[in-house]
Design a binder for these strands. Structure first.
Lengths: 343, 343
DNA sequence: CTGAAAGCGCTTACAG
DNA sequence: CTGAAAGCGCTTACAG
């Protein structure tokens, strides 16, 4: 900037005004500054600006999700980007892999870079380490799961309701031995979906069989192994409820390998790509990804939508409503990528 | 930091040394500083550090891809993150949506935040605007496509070879009317894949039919419409070569809607989720996503792998090799997310 | 409308 | 080993 000022023959203040578009500057000076900027290939340094400016806003936020390459989370990422873009805000994105240490490390690295806000899909654990930063003015929103030991804005799906609907759908198809394959139970959504599964069974007078409930590690082919064991064991389930998108994918593969995809019913929580092309097939437009073969009239549940892109369905097929939990301090710096639906 | 120094009763220099782990500092002083840091909830300001420090490294990079939520690109994003994480570098990610203006806007916003390097999937257009920054020391790598009017490190797939292999596979199955559905021809990968398609036809003495070549806009249901028109028209193709993952998905849906998925052969460039669960089915482990129904012995082509995660296949099923093009100035700040394979 | 000066939070020679 | 001082690239009252 000093070089620009020298070349244009003006003061630093004037260059600063031109570069920031602050109104009161004579046209000919502005022009001289502009051409000096171009000649020198000058780039404004936002970090230095941020250090001195009154608002101290870095125009960047941090997004901490489970995995940037999981389609569920990458769709959220896109939703966030679509909003931040309209405000000239850039997004740091990172994966916690469900590990509290990794989440904290990422979050603190983000805070050291003075992000204006943080959107976090919290891993299990204590989030009180963020209380001070939130109080200091860092925007903070949790999505998909609530934080622990911290009061903050949170956006949730109706996990219990979705799981109940899914299991009830299978029961209506005549099933009574329904397996549950979900994420680790420390994860909020997994626990809630298991609760929904249990509530649906109880509602229909079906006794729970612990042998049908499992939380396979999906990173190491655990889902495939567990699904196979379940289906090849004594007294196998006649239906599967898989409570997460990657688990659904794994179970689907095994079902096909065993050529059981036409005889074992299957409902998954979370939408998956190509759900409407799989066999058994089902009418286009239906959101329920899998159709219980014994049920001849699949229900037409409506899912909620994330992000503003048409036709994109990323929230649980069986999550009839989103809940937005507001902390006392409102989040003002970014609107939520989820659209709120009347219940 | 001033407050920390005051509370600990030491100078700013000492606090700086402790916070940065610079060796020569007395144990008791270090301890006093540490507890002052904790009492005050002090967070080191990396932006301010960056402004003054000798190396001027921000420990952050920018990733500009077509769409953060496209599975092909989000897998690359994860690969990048896995490497940057080991160096305590954070990643800004953004979507260009194939628009030159958007790419430039994003890139310049990134540069204003003084990223140490940029990984870009270039949209069509002139990239010489980056020459000055590259010369000034910003790391620069292009992936998936080469930049234009700029000499820089680039990582490419073998698009021509992959497309040739795909089309030859269909020809081997007895097909001669093979449609090409690809991305806009200004996009390097789309043009290259079209070239491979043409080369394969020529090689087998098949005359090209312009009516069978199209570049539908996949954002607005264009793929589905175009596929339908093609298949319902006079003299329809007996086989489809779709040259991009989202186009493959769209064509697949239409094929299923028309109940033609068992009679029209289909090969797609890029892996897609659930490729191994679709029907017609094919042996597990095969990378070719679709099996030409008239061909009873699908070939077992091996794809290349991106990212370090096991079982992840994101590069074209029919891209037998990656090419790494080195610009005169080597890229040293981040290793490539693609693994290089012997041809 | 313009410029000289102070200062944002930090690091880094330089003396001590 | 420690501290006082200068300065990174910028903005912002403050005079003029």
């Amino acid at each position: 900037m000093r070089d620009v000022a020298a070349l244009a023959g003006v003061s630093l203040s004037t260059v600063s005004r031109v570069v920031n578009g602050s109104p009161p500057v004579r046209a000919d000076l502005a022009e001289r500054v502009q051409s000096a900027v171009e000649m020198l290939g000058y780039r404004h340094d936002l970090a230095a600006r941020n250090l001195r400016s009154a608002d101290r806003l870095s125009a960047s936020i941090g997004l901490v999700i489970e995995d940037v390459s999981n389609p569920f989370f990458s769709a959220i990422h896109r939703g966030v980007e679509d909003v931040t873009r309209t405000r000239s805000v850039l997004t740091f994105a990172g994966s916690s892999d469900e590990q509290p240490d990794r989440e904290r490390e990422l979050t603190e690295a983000l805070l050291a870079r003075r992000v204006d806000g943080l959107i976090i899909v919290p891993a299990p654990g204590n989030h009180s380490y963020l209380a001070r930063d939130a109080a200091a003015g860092v925007g903070l929103v949790f999505i998909d799961r609530p934080p622990q030991f911290l009061d903050a804005d949170t956006v949730l799906s109706d996990n219990v309701g979705g799981a109940r609907a899914a299991v009830s759908h299978l029961v209506a198809g005549g099933h009574r031995r329904i397996a549950f394959l979900g994420d680790q139970p420390q994860i909020f959504t997994a626990a809630e979906r298991l609760r929904g599964y249990r509530e649906a069974l109880a509602e229909h007078g079906i006794r729970e069989d612990p042998a049908l409930i499992d939380h396979p590690a999906f990173r190491a082919g655990g889902v495939e192994a567990r699904t196979r064991a379940l289906l090849e064991g004594d007294d196998p389930p006649t239906a599967l409820f898989t409570a997460q998108n990657l688990i659904t994918l794994g179970a689907l593969k095994t079902l096909h390998e065993l050529d059981l995809h036409r005889s074992v019913a299957h409902v998954g929580f979370d939408d998956i790509p190509l759900a409407d092309v799989l066999e058994p097939d089902f009418a286009a437009g239906e959101i329920a990804p899998f159709h219980a073969p014994r049920n001849s009239s699949p229900s037409r549940e409506k899912g909620t939508e994330t992000s503003g892109r048409p036709g994109r369905r990323t929230v649980a097929s069986f999550a009839p409503a989103m809940t937005i939990v507001r902390a006392p301090r409102r989040c003002a710096w970014v609107s939520c990528p989820f659209t709120e639906r009347p219940a």
